[in-house]
Simulated scan of single mutants.
Amino acid sequence: MRERAPHSVWLDGTAILFRVKALAQTGLLDDRLFAYYDDDDIGTRLARQGWYSRCVFTATVYHEVRYTYEEYPLYLIYLLQRNHMLFYYKNTPAPYRSKL
């Protein structure tokens, strides 16, 4: 029988719960990635350490969306683009970084 939802997923986003033991092993969120990609980065680091994510697909989280992309203040666009580059540079193996 095929599952309706995956058993294990890489999570990013608003309402994540972490095991204290996982954070002790992996470290906390990277302050350089404040606002964007900090959750992707910690998910990547946790996965490299052998941790996995679980998701409750029936849960509901409300996240206020105040802007469309076109309405974002310039500093948010800057953070989004800068953190995108930092995340991929940090998490791409050295031999492949030149391809970024």
Rank of each mutant, 00 (worst) to 15 (best):
P93V: 05
T68W: 07
A22N: 04
Q81R: 12
G27F: 00
F87Y: 07
Y89I: 14
L28T: 10
Y72A: 14
L11Q: 07
L86G: 03
Y37P: 00
Q81I: 14
R54D: 02
R97V: 05
L76N: 01
A22P: 02
F18S: 02
V65D: 06
Y37H: 08
P73Y: 00
Y36E: 06
L80H: 02
I16M: 05
T58V: 11
R54I: 06
L28W: 10
K90H: 05
A47P: 00
Y62G: 11
T26C: 13
S53K: 03
L33S: 01
I42R: 00
Y62K: 15
T92Y: 03
H7R: 12
D31A: 15
T14C: 10
C55A: 08
R54F: 03
S8V: 12
W10Y: 11
P95R: 13
K99L: 08
L76K: 05
P73S: 01
L46I: 04
E3K: 11
G13V: 01
A15Q: 14
L76H: 01
Y67P: 04
L23T: 06
W51Y: 10
R19E: 02
H84M: 10
D30L: 02
R19Y: 01
Y88L: 13
Y89H: 11
P6D: 07
T44K: 09
E71A: 15
F34W: 07
Y36M: 03
Y75G: 05
R2I: 13
Q49M: 13
H63T: 09
H7N: 09
L76E: 02
R32H: 05
Y96Q: 14
Y89L: 14
I16H: 01
S53I: 02
Y37T: 03
T68P: 04
